[in-house]
Nucleic acid binder design. Structure first.
Length: 598
RNA sequence: GCAGCCGUAGCUCAGCUGGAUAGAGCGUUGGCCUCCGAAGCCAAAGGUCGCUGGUUCGAUUCCAGUCGGCUGCACCA
């Protein structure tokens, strides 16, 4: 495939010296495999693009392909059997399709980053899954990736929690004691210590609205924590432990993992040095009320970055500063991607500006990939106010709905629970990836857990149907579509195993088969788009196109019919194997599993 | 007030660094299971791409302005 493109390019370069050659991918298989728009050439030569296309079509030749001038476009259309041969060779041949050689670029992805002592809401899904996909795709494309979970385990919010706990823990619920065995009741989420802590947190904010003086109480507690007060530290450690146990269960369900879980507290002892560096470089100035700030007007940011509060304590900007400096020393990274909501764009602009002033090394290496918030139909979600949708409720509801459908359509399915879990996660996670990450999402159950149409289960269904055909085909067909080892979140790619191709591929001349091949050809580019744009949309959409093309192929081209002859059967089964692998690989990069039956 | 993001079919959204008839899903209407899984397939209807200018051979895409919506604007994260 790539050789054909290269030879097309070479022919064009010799025919049109001095003209920049940009080869595009046509919109559909009927137009061809490669397209050369002649507009630039026309401008450079001062001639009519349609005429140029016609002349080129007449004068050039490409082995195994037809050159067609369609208006101002010069299209290369491979002969069906050549196209099938080249693409299957690329998909199943000795070299994994679309992979890139490993290179030394080190990419850090900071994502998920939940706050300790709060429950995962549907809002946390976005950072977690976008980050996971970016980590997977960058690793797949050969980068050295470090997955960082910047836990929100420090800050004034802990003052709030400590104040709330010491005020009301005993009266609210005697069982919410520091010695409470959280494992005892962990099955009932609404009764876990984490949920009770969450309730205390909400209550404090409610009462604080009436009694503003309580705010000082929280601030004092945080100061005690920051100064190393033993009681504050002891409670903090317990809060953290309880929270992490809860978080881990959700990460396990989503198949998400991390290489480092250093939270904000980890950087606590690294902040003084960071602040001192700012001071030494003359960037730190005293602002209103005795706080210390870095002015950024000269780089177009009117709001200064506050680094030390008037009471001498730190702020999240200080911790992000220390974290970036630490990460430079630890990883010597080429890129650091912060997957954080779009409500924090200003914060990251400030942070990057401060770091850039402090050390030009940081310039161009830091990237904030913002994403839109999830809102409820009635407005913004607020943990403090308590009107939130918990992520685990959404995951559970998705699984429940899938179970109901399985009970109706495939009641004899073995291992229903595991399959329902894969499909439920698939629905929720795929939905998150489907659209541009910067756009806000209004949460409704039916949207987020849709199971028909452009959804994860649609792609999973196509995969399951392929496996069903391969099972019926017998022999080793199923093995060919299976990975060689169990998949885990720690690896970025489904293990690759080359396959020999049949001699005769005439069974793939049908337009539906050709169309499927065309969509499969688009997968590597979609994966590179994910890396370039730092969002999974292109990959999710390409998988849908492949699944759709497969469904059409499946209904139009009988695979197992004996009257077709063994050559046709083998060619179509081989295409099935290639499709199953592509779907499984693509879903896996997104953190979605593909069951063989559903 | 200043800054950023977003306005594409009834609804939810794609549209790849400007380019071939603007594409999907949901919903609506009508077809398709005595042959591989109907969680599916096929077809129809539905759009002056918010508005006005500008750049260009060519703008949904780039620029300016304008209207509408969302977000942020120092001691929360």
């Amino acid at each position: 495939m790539e050789q054909v493109k290269a030879s097309f390019r070479a022919s064009l370069e010799s025919a049109l010296p001095g003209v920049e050659i940009l080869i595009e991918r046509p919109k559909s298989a009927e137009m061809g495999d490669f397209a050369f728009p002649c507009f630039r050439a026309a401008k450079a030569l001062g001639r009519n693009p349609t005429q140029i296309a016609q002349e080129l079509a007449a004068s050039l030749t490409i082995q195994g392909a037809e050159l067609k001038a369609t208006g101002p476009y010069l299209n290369v259309q491979l002969r069906p059997e050549v196209r099938a041969r080249l693409l299957l060779e690329a998909l199943l041949g000795p070299t994994p399709y679309g992979s890139a050689p490993a290179h030394s670029e080190t990419v850090l992805v900071e994502y998920s980053s939940p706050n300790i002592a709060k429950l995962f809401t549907i809002g946390h899904l976005r950072s977690t899954m976008i980050g996971h996909t970016l980590a997977q795709v960058n690793r797949y494309l050969g980068c050295q990736v470090q997955r960082l979970n910047h836990l929100g385990d420090w800050g004034t919010q802990f003052g709030t929690l400590l104040a709330a706990y010491t005020r009301w823990a005993a009266e609210t619920n005697p069982k919410l004691d520091r010695d409470f065995d959280w494992a005892e009741e962990s099955s009932a989420r609404r009764h876990t210590p984490l949920f009770r802590l969450f309730q205390l947190y909400v209550r404090f904010h409610q009462e604080e609205a009436v009694h503003p003086e309580m705010r000082d109480e929280a601030r004092t507690w945080f100061k005690r924590l920051e100064e190393g007060d033993s009681e504050a530290r002891r409670l903090w450690t317990w809060f953290r432990q309880v929270s992490l146990a809860e978080f881990q269960r959700i990460y396990d369900r989503l198949g998400v993992g991390f290489d480092a879980m250093d939270g904000e507290a980890f950087y606590e002892d690294k902040m003084p040095a960071a602040v001192q560096r700012l001071r030494d470089s003359g960037l730190l100035e005293e602002g209103e009320g005795g706080a210390f700030i870095v002015r950024l007007e000269d780089v177009g940011i009117q709001t200064p970055s506050l680094m030390v509060k008037a009471d001498g304590t730190t702020i999240y900007a200080t911790r992000d500063l220390a974290a970036a400096i630490f990460r430079r020393e630890t990883y010597d990274f080429d890129r650091c991607i912060y997957v954080v909501g779009s409500d924090q764009v200003l914060h990251f602009q400030q942070l990057f500006a401060v770091l850039g002033k402090l050390d030009p090394w940081f310039q161009g290496r830091l990237l904030h990939t913002p994403f839109g918030m999830i809102q409820l139909p009635e407005g913004k979600m607020s943990t403090r106010k308590g009107n939130v949708v918990f992520l685990e409720d959404v995951l559970d509801e998705a699984v429940t709905r899938v179970m109901a459908i399985i009970g109706e359509k495939n009641p004899d399915l073995p291992d229903k629970g595991a399959v329902a879990e894969m499909l439920g996660m698939g629905a929720v996670v795929f939905f998150d990836a489907l659209n541009d990450r910067v756009k806000p999402i209004t949460f409704t159950w039916d949207r987020v857990i849709a199971l028909d149409g452009d959804t994860g289960p649609y792609v999973q269904y196509a995969h399951a149907r392929i496996l069903s055909v391969l099972r019926k085909a017998g022999g080793t067909w199923v093995q060919k579509a299976r990975p060689t080892e169990a998949l885990s979140p720690a690896i970025a790619a489904v293990p690759y195993r080359p396959e020999a191709l049949p001699e005769d591929l005439s069974g793939l001349e049908d337009p539906a088969a050709q169309s499927l091949l065309f969509e499969l050809a688009g997968l590597p580019e979609a994966i590179r788009t994910v890396q370039r744009e730092n969002m999974a949309t292109a990959l999710a959409r390409q998988l849908l196109s492949i699944a759709r093309a497969f469904s059409a192929f499946y209904t139009n081209c009988p695979i197992l019919w004996a009257e077709n002859g063994p050559e046709v059967r083998e060619a179509r089964l081989t295409l099935c194997v290639a499709t199953a692998r592509a779907l499984r690989q693509g879903l896996f990069l997104m953190g979605i599993q593909a069951p063989e039956e559903m």
